[in-house]
Each structure stands twice: as C-alpha cells, then as structure tokens.
Design a binder for these strands. Structure first.
Lengths: 204, 204
DNA sequence: TGTTTTTACTAAACACTGTTTAGTATATTT
DNA sequence: AAATATACTAAACAGTGTTTAGTAAAAACA
C-alpha cells in the first residue's frame, strides 16, 4: 500500500505549505495581522481547509516558534568552537542578542508572546526553550568549574545571564528603550556595551 | 454659566466610570477578554457611547497604564527614606520586582504590551516611563559619586539594572521560567536571589 | 414663553477575527 | 459497478473594534 505513504507525504506537504505561507506573512505583517483567512487566500485554499491540518492558529505559530528555535540553536552552537569557557559564554550572549535584534518578530514569538506556549500548557514541556537554556547552563557550569567567574549557584547564574540579555532585547523590541533620547544605532551599541559590562563584572 | 462646568464634571465622571469598569474587568480577565462591549454592558451604556469619551480601546488602556505607573512610582519613592545610596538602589530593585510579581497584569501593560504605547507613537514622550527610569538613574548616579559601585557610564548602568530586573520578571510573567523544574514559590525566591547576587557583584 | 440649536446617546451596520458544521465532489476500496 | 472514505469548501456562528445615521432631551436664543 504505497498509497498510504503518498497520502502521508501529501499531508506533510500541505502542512509545510501552510507553515511557509504563515511564516512569510508573519515576518512581513506581524502576528495579529496574519489571519487564517490571509493564509488561506495566499495558498489558494478555503480557511476551513487549514483546520484539517492544524488544530488552531496557535498550533501554526507553535511550529514557526520551533523553527525559529532551530535557527537560534544553530547560531548558538557555533560558539562551540571557542575553547575558553568564559569567552564562549560571551560569544553565546552576543549571538543571542544579535539573533534578537536581527529577528525581532521571531524573538517576540519565542520569548515574549503568549500564543505559541498555549500549545504547551499542562502536559508537554517547552523543549525548545529547555534546549537553548540548557546550553547556557552547561557553559556557565564550565566557567564555574574552571573558576572563570565569581562563584554562585549554576542555575541562579544561568537565570541571571539569560534574564539580563532578555531584559535588554525585550525592552528594545517592545519599544520601552525610548526613555533614552538616543538614535537607534547608538541604542543598539549601548545594548552590546551593557552586555560587555555585565560579563566583565561576572569575571573573577 | 455654571452649566458648562457641570457638563465638564459630568464628562470627567463618565471617563472615570469607564476607566474604573475597564480596570476592574482588565484585572479580572486580562486585556484581550476586556472588550468595549463588555465594558459597555458593565456600565449599562451602549458601546458607541464609549467612543464619545475615548478615541479607541488603546486610549482607555493608556490611562490605566498611567494609573499603574502612579502606583509604581509611589511604591518606588518609599525607598527615598533609605540613606545609603546603594541600599536605596537595592530597595528600588526589590520594590520593582515585588510590584511586578504582585501586579502581573499591570506590569504587562506597563512594560510588555504594545497596546498602550500606540498612543504615544511619534509626537508625545513616554513620560511615565521616563519618570520611573529617571529615579533609577538618579540613584545610580549617587552610588557612582560615592564610589559604592564599580565605575561605569551612569546611563549604561541604569539600563543594565532595569533590564536585569525586567528580564527576570518578564520571563516569569510570560511563563518562560518553566524551563526550571521548580515550584512557583521556589522560582519567586530564585528571582529575588538573582537580584541580590547581581547587586553584590555591582558593589565595589 | 416658544423656537431653534446643541448635546448625549444608541441601534444598526461595517469589516474584520477564529472556528465549526453540513454538504459535495473526488479518490480509493470492496 | 457500488460502497466507502477522503479532501475540500460555502456558509454560518459568535465574537471583535469602530463608524454612521438618527433620536430624544437639554440648553440657548428669541
């Protein structure tokens, strides 16, 4: 029965088609303005068809959110090449910040919006998040073992580092940094400088 | 012509009535589930009436956002009593965090959601934000003058401290701290511990 | 006072949204 | 060839923010 396999393939193709259209519309117009009807129009199917492939709108954006994490994780792991654990931690921080500033809509979906996580609520785990966060924790563990940073609980430090960078980029992404009377370019520089300053005071 | 004054009073009363109802509904059910029709039902007027007193939904939530800032600022200024500038900074940080954890919906509106700031876009300034942030900057300035913290640019430090605490509470409020397999109580404790740890490494 | 104007309000509509239901062709299996 | 299963959609449901046109009551004017 090769027919069943073909049907399975076709089902996956249709899912991909929907995700591709949704991703493109999302990156162009944002979450709120990407409606099921817009996606349906774009792929030239009726809105109801989309519900044969996805439970609801949030499930679509959960998949996009997972793709975005794959992208971020790929970027983060590039720092694996850095020998010194502290330099690696710095690299990870800068990569994370760069990702957020270059892909603000993805970042929003991954770490700010409630939508994609409605998929997880009670039951599943937030694997994508745990994976990215785990890498930070590991690296901090290495820094602690080699006494490259001031001693503290590994998880507390991981939470701190993550929160620090997230704080900077999320205030920027959601336009709260306007309290600084600075040009956008100078502001971005200052975000990076803040990170450097934080790393320097973490150092032993 | 005392009539004009009465009319003015009545107009303000109606605005207050709408804000009170909206605030109550917002704190009970959240932003998305607080619709103009819900508010109208609650105050026993037609939905169209609300538009005679507010330009749009965002203007209503901008006022609520301002009230929330008044509340936060009042709390923050209580730290004025603390003599030592560094202790005062710590107090401000803890007060900010406490406010966010006790009023997550207000915090969301003030520092995460896009809605209330749509009111500001091009033209006005975000006065409420600048006021709260200014107080942090001032205190950090005092810390620097008295050499209580490691030297760095005043604004860079203010941005850092704010971002650090915002990072912690916003990841918590938007449920990204679930990467930690901890109970809610332990998690909250860890947020405060993170802040203490950060303050300790800022110290000279 | 009576007439005109202004004010306060609303019913209904517009243009959307996510989602569900019922029904129809087409493809597959028996 | 007949029966069944699959893929799809038109239309509806229940909601959203917002606007328009029209109506009573209040205020101003004569």
């Amino acid at each position: 029965m090769a027919i069943k396999e073909r049907k399975e393939r076709e089902k996956q193709d249709m899912r991909n088609l929907i995700i591709e259209s949704a991703t493109q519309l999302f990156l162009k117009h944002g979450y709120d303005k990407t409606s099921i009807r817009n996606i349906a129009d774009d792929i030239e199917y009726s809105p109801a068809t989309i519900y044969l492939y996805f439970k609801d709108k949030d499930e679509i954006f959960y998949v996009i959110h997972e793709n975005a994490f794959e992208l971020l994780n790929k970027e983060l792991r590039k720092n694996e090449a850095i020998e010194n654990a502290f330099d690696r931690l710095g690299g990870i921080g800068r990569t994370y910040m760069k990702f957020a500033l270059e892909n603000p809509d993805y970042y929003d979906l991954m770490f700010i919006m409630r939508a994609p996580l409605s998929q997880i609520k009670s039951e599943q785990k937030w694997e994508a998040g745990e994976c990215a966060f785990g890498y930070v924790t590991e690296t901090i563990g290495a820094c602690l073992e080699q006494k490259l940073i001031k001693p503290a609980d590994k998880f507390l430090l991981a939470m701190s580092v993550w929160s620090f960078v997230h704080g900077l980029v999320s205030l920027y992404v959601r336009e709260r940094m306007c309290v600084f009377p600075l040009s956008d370019d100078l502001l971005r520089d200052m975000l990076y400088s803040s990170l450097e300053n934080y790393l320097s005071i973490l150092k032993t």
